[in-house]
């Protein structure tokens, strides 16, 4: 009975969205790990480091869309044949986390690098947002 109820609710929800949003919704519902981050702000921009151990460099996804910075990646580890998991603290093989960017940041100039499972991003501030002195004109 409950299974039937769930299906109908799902259908009802999907109907109200456009196809695109429905797909995105499905992705968001996938269980993912939240990468731990450190974030610092300096005069010229933000530095963000995120831990994604097990994700090779070419599997790291960084995208900016409508002021939303999304970090994601799939853990890819060599499989051991016939292995049974007995204890797991890392329970899923996908990381995902998003951050809202403020307008002062220049998302077109984000620099990214990855080493030893740590993703480092530098998000510069737009030229107009950098601190500057304003000359007061005497008129």
């Amino acid at each position: 009975m409950s299974k039937h109820e769930m299906t109908t609710t799902d259908n009802a929800t999907n109907r109200t969205y456009t196809a695109d949003i429905a797909t995105e919704n499905a992705t968001q519902h996938r269980v993912s790990l939240r990468p731990l981050v450190n974030i610092t702000e300096a005069e010229d921009g933000f530095t963000l480091t995120a831990e994604m151990p097990g994700v090779p460099k070419d599997a790291v996804e960084v995208k900016v869309e409508d002021g939303l910075l999304t970090l994601a990646g799939d853990i890819k580890l060599p499989q051991v044949t016939g292995m049974k998991s007995t204890y797991a603290e890392v329970k899923t093989a996908r990381y995902q986390r998003a951050f809202t960017l403020s307008r002062e940041l220049d998302s077109t100039k984000i620099e990214a690098s990855q080493a030893d499972g740590v993703l480092s991003l530098h998000i510069p501030k737009a030229e107009h947002a950098k601190p500057r002195k304003i000359e007061v004109q005497v008129g």
Binding site: V80, T86, G117
Partner: peptide
């Protein structure tokens, strides 16, 4: 994890 012939340990040590 374990297999018939070994014990496998994964340690997540980023950075």
């Amino acid at each position: 994890g374990t297999t018939d012939s070994s014990v496998e340990v994964l340690v997540f040590v980023p950075g």
